[in-house]
Design a binder for these strands. Sequence first.
DNA 1: AGGGTGATAAACT
DNA 2: GTTTATCACCCTA
Length: 207
Amino acid sequence: MTYHWLQAPASQVATTAQTLLGWTVSANGVSLRLTEVEAYAGTGEDPASHAQRGPTPRNEVMFGSAGNIYLYFVFGMHWCMNIVCGHEGEAAAVLLRAGEVTEGIEVARERRNHAPDSYLARGPARLVNALGLGRDANGTSAVDGSGPMLLTPPSAAIDPALVASGPRVGVTAAHDIPWRFWLVGEPSVSPYRRHTPRRRPTYTVIV
DNA sequence: AGGGTGATAAACT
DNA sequence: GTTTATCACCCTA
C-alpha cells in the first residue's frame, strides 16, 4: 500500500503531518491512534531538522522512501520515531509525539512500567516504548507490511476544527515555526514545554 | 501544576 | 568538548 500524500514534496511536510493525526500505528501487539505530531523539513529548509546539513549516517533514512521509519537515539537512552515523507532524495519527516492506546493496552502498560493510561504514549520516547520498537525498526516500511509496524487510516476523517498547532517541543532552533500539530482535548497530548537551556555543569576548583 | 535535575551516548564542531 | 526533536523523579505550591 502506498499513500500518495506521504510523497508530497518536502516543502509541504506540515500538511502531511496534519493528515497523519488520527491514523493508527500498530506494532508488537499494541495499536495507538496518533494525537500529536511534529513536521521536520529537509536540507537547508529547517534549522531544527536533522537533515538541515545534508545526509549523514544517522539521518540517511530521511532521504529514502516515504512511509519508512526513521528512528534516532537521543539523550543517551531514548528512541524517537518519524515517518519519512516527501520524494525520494528529499529529506522530510513527521515525528510521532503522542497517541492513544486503542489495542493491547495490557501489553502497553507492562512495557511502560504501569504508568497511568494517559501517559502510556504521551511523548515521543514513551510512544516508541509502548510499541516495543527500537534500533531494529529504523529504515523499515510502515506502509507495506514488510516491517514491524503498520500505519492504517482512521475510519472517519478527522474534523479539521479539532487540529491545533504551535511551536515544536524541545527544539532550540526555529521557535517561530508552528509545526507541532495535535488533536484538541486529547488526554494523551503532551503539554508544551519551552525548551529550557540546560545549565552545563560547572566545577569550581577549591584551592 | 510546574520547575529543576540526573541519567547516559552518539553526533557533531 | 558541547549539544541533544527526552523521561522519571523529586521538590515547592
